[in-house]
Simulated assay, not measured.
Amino acid sequence: MIAMILESPLYTTNYGAAYIGDSLELLDCIEPDSIDLVITSPPFALLREKSYGNVDQEAYIDWLFAFCKKVYRILAPQGSFVLDLGGAYQSKRPVRSLYNYRILIKLCDELDFRLAEEFFWYNPSKLPSPIEWVNKRKIRAKDAVNTVWWLSKTDNPKANVSKVLVPYSERMKKLHENPEKYYKPKERPSGHDIGTSFATNNGGAIPSNLLQIPNTESNSRYIQLCKAVGIPAHPARFPQKLPLFFINFLTELGDTVLDIFAGSNTTGFAAETVQRRWIAFEQNPSYLAASAFRFLDANENNDAAAKLFEKLLRKQEKIKITPSETQLHHSFI
Score class of each variant (00 low, 15 high):
Gly79Glu: 05
Phe119Leu: 03
Val164Arg: 01
Tyr60Ala: 10
Leu75Met: 11
Lys181Leu: 14
Lys136Arg: 12
Leu175Gly: 04
Val161Ser: 11
Asp62Ala: 15
Glu117Gln: 13
Lys184Pro: 08
Thr147Trp: 03
Phe67Pro: 07
Glu118Thr: 00
Tyr122Met: 06
Pro130His: 05
Ala116Leu: 11
Lys138Thr: 07
Pro130Met: 05
Gly86Val: 07
Asp84Leu: 01
Val95Gly: 06
Lys106Arg: 15
Leu175Pro: 05
Arg137Thr: 03
Thr147His: 12
Gly79Ile: 06
Arg114Val: 08
Met172Val: 13
Lys106Phe: 05
Phe119Ser: 00
Ile131Ala: 06
Phe113Ser: 01
Tyr99Ser: 15
Tyr101Met: 12
Trp63Pro: 10
Lys186Arg: 15
Ser152Phe: 00
Trp121Asp: 06
Pro157Cys: 04
Tyr182Ser: 03
Pro130Glu: 02
Asn160Pro: 05
Glu170Gln: 12
Trp133Leu: 01
Asn123Tyr: 01
Pro124Ile: 04
Leu111Asn: 07
Arg171Gly: 12
Arg137Asn: 03
Ile74Asn: 03
Glu132Thr: 12
Glu180Ala: 14
Gly79Arg: 08
Phe67His: 15
Leu151Trp: 00
Arg96Asn: 09
Val134Gln: 00
Glu170Tyr: 04
Ser129Lys: 07
Leu98Lys: 07
Leu175Val: 13
Phe119Pro: 01
Val161Tyr: 12
Ile131Tyr: 03
Ala76Leu: 04
Ile131Asn: 06
Val166Phe: 12
Lys92Asp: 15
Lys153Ile: 07
Tyr168Asp: 10
Leu111Pro: 08
Leu104Cys: 06
Tyr99Phe: 15
Ile103Trp: 04
His176Lys: 12
Asn123Ser: 03
Leu98Glu: 08
Ile139Phe: 00
Tyr72Ala: 04
Asn135Met: 09
Ser162Phe: 13
Leu85Glu: 03
Pro167Asp: 02
Lys70Pro: 08
Ser162Lys: 15
Val71Lys: 09
Gly86Ser: 13
Asn135Ile: 07
Lys142Tyr: 03
Val161Arg: 08
Pro77Leu: 10
Leu151Pro: 00
Pro185Gly: 06
Ser152Asp: 01
Pro167Lys: 01
Lys163Ser: 14
Arg114Lys: 14
Asn178Ser: 14
Arg73Leu: 09
Asp112Thr: 11
Ser91Lys: 15
Val82Gln: 05
Ile139Asn: 00
Val71Pro: 08
Leu165Ile: 09
Leu98Trp: 03
Gly86Glu: 06
Val148His: 05
Pro94Lys: 02
Leu83Glu: 02
Tyr168Ala: 12
Asp62Asn: 14
Leu127Cys: 02
Thr147Cys: 09
Asp112Arg: 13
Glu132Asn: 02
Ala76His: 03
Ile103Asp: 06
Lys153Phe: 07
Lys158Pro: 00
